[in-house]
Computed example of a mutant assay.
Amino acid sequence: MNKNLLGIALGGLLIASGLGASGYFIGQTMYNAKVAMNTAEVKGLAEKRVEADTANWSLNFTNQTKSKDEIPALYKQAEQQQQEIVDILKANGFSDDEIDIGLIDYSAYEYRDENQVVVEQEHTLTGRIGLETHKVHDIKSVRAEVNKLVAKGYNISNHSPTYRFTKLNAIKPEMLKTATKNARLAANEFAENAGVKVGSIRSARQGNFSITDSGEEYGDLYKIEKDVRVVTSIEFYLTE
Score class of each variant (00 low, 15 high):
residue 83 Q to Y: 03
residue 101 I to G: 03
residue 190 F to Y: 14
residue 197 K to H: 02
residue 49 R to H: 09
residue 46 A to P: 00
residue 228 V to W: 01
residue 103 L to E: 06
residue 138 D to K: 15
residue 183 A to D: 08
residue 44 G to L: 02
residue 191 A to Q: 08
residue 209 F to H: 12
residue 35 V to K: 00
residue 190 F to R: 11
residue 130 G to D: 09
residue 13 L to Q: 09
residue 202 R to M: 05
residue 203 S to W: 01
residue 219 G to T: 04
residue 13 L to M: 14
residue 61 F to E: 10
residue 12 G to L: 07
residue 187 A to H: 04
residue 150 V to G: 05
residue 201 I to S: 07
residue 57 W to H: 10
residue 216 E to V: 11
residue 235 E to H: 11
residue 198 V to K: 00
residue 68 K to D: 11
residue 21 A to P: 00
residue 183 A to L: 00
residue 26 I to L: 13
residue 93 G to E: 02
residue 63 N to A: 11
residue 30 M to R: 14
residue 145 E to C: 04
residue 96 D to L: 11
residue 33 A to P: 01
residue 168 L to Q: 10
residue 103 L to A: 14
residue 194 A to M: 12
residue 187 A to W: 02
residue 214 S to H: 10
residue 211 I to N: 09
residue 193 N to G: 06
residue 227 D to C: 09
residue 239 T to E: 11
residue 9 A to N: 08
residue 126 T to I: 12
residue 29 T to A: 07
residue 95 S to D: 07
residue 139 I to A: 05
residue 52 A to N: 09
residue 188 N to E: 15
residue 37 M to R: 00
residue 32 N to Y: 04
residue 191 A to D: 08
residue 114 E to V: 07
residue 65 T to C: 04
residue 98 E to L: 09
residue 197 K to I: 11
residue 205 R to L: 12
